Computed example of a mutant assay.
Amino acid sequence: MNNNLKGYAAWISVCIVWGTTYLAIRIGVAHIPPMLFAGIRWIIAGIIFVSALKFIKKLPPIKDLKHIAVMGLLMLGFGNGLVVTGEQYISSGLAALLITTVPFWIVGFDSLALKKSDLNKYIVSGLLLGLVGVSAIFGDNWRDLFNKEYLIGVLSILGAVIAWSVGSVYSKHKRINAHPLMSAAVQMLVAGLAQTLLGILLGEMSQVHFNQEGIYSLAYLIVFGSILGYGSYIYAIEHLPLSLVSTYAYINPIIAVFLGWLVLNEKLNLYMIIAAVLIIAGVMLVKKGSETSIVKKMSGTQQST
Rank of each mutant, 00 (worst) to 15 (best):
M1I: 12
N2D: 15
L5V: 14
L5S: 14
A9G: 11
W18K: 00
T20Y: 10
T21V: 09
T21S: 05
Y22V: 07
L23V: 09
A24I: 09
G28W: 12
G28L: 05
V29A: 01
H31M: 04
H31Q: 13
P34C: 01
A38Y: 03
G39Q: 04
W42A: 05
I43S: 08
A45Y: 02
I47D: 00
I48D: 07
I48C: 02
F49Y: 15
V50C: 00
S51C: 12
A52M: 15
A52D: 05
K54Y: 13
F55S: 13
P61S: 09
K63L: 05
D64A: 10
D64P: 02
H67K: 13
L73D: 13
M75H: 07
M75R: 06
G77C: 08
G77K: 11
G77N: 09
G77M: 02
F78N: 02
G79Y: 05
G79E: 02
N80I: 10
V83S: 03
E87W: 03
G93D: 02
G93H: 06
L97N: 07
T101R: 12
P103Y: 10
V107H: 04
V107P: 03
G108E: 01
D110I: 00
D110C: 08
A113K: 15
K115Y: 04
K116S: 13
D118R: 01
N120H: 07
K121C: 04
I123M: 03
S125C: 11
G126M: 08
L128S: 12
G130F: 07
V134E: 05
S135L: 10
G139M: 03
R143E: 12
R143M: 14
E149G: 13
L158Q: 10
G159H: 10
V161A: 02
I162N: 07
S165C: 08
S171A: 15
K172Q: 08
H173T: 11
H173Y: 15
K174S: 08
H179Q: 09
M182R: 01
A184K: 00
Q187K: 00
Q187C: 07
M188W: 00
L189Y: 03
L189M: 11
L189W: 10
A191K: 01
A194V: 08
Q195N: 13
L197S: 04
L197R: 07
I200V: 15
M205N: 10
F210L: 14
Q212C: 11
G229P: 04
Y230P: 08
G231E: 10
Y233T: 12
I234W: 03
E238P: 09
H239K: 15
L242I: 11
S243P: 12
A249F: 13
Y250M: 07
Y250G: 04
I251A: 10
L259S: 09
V263I: 15
V263C: 10
N265F: 05
E266H: 09
M272Y: 11
I273K: 14
A275K: 11
A276S: 13
I280Q: 04
G282N: 05
K287Q: 13
K297V: 08
S299H: 14
T301P: 00
T301M: 13
Q302A: 15
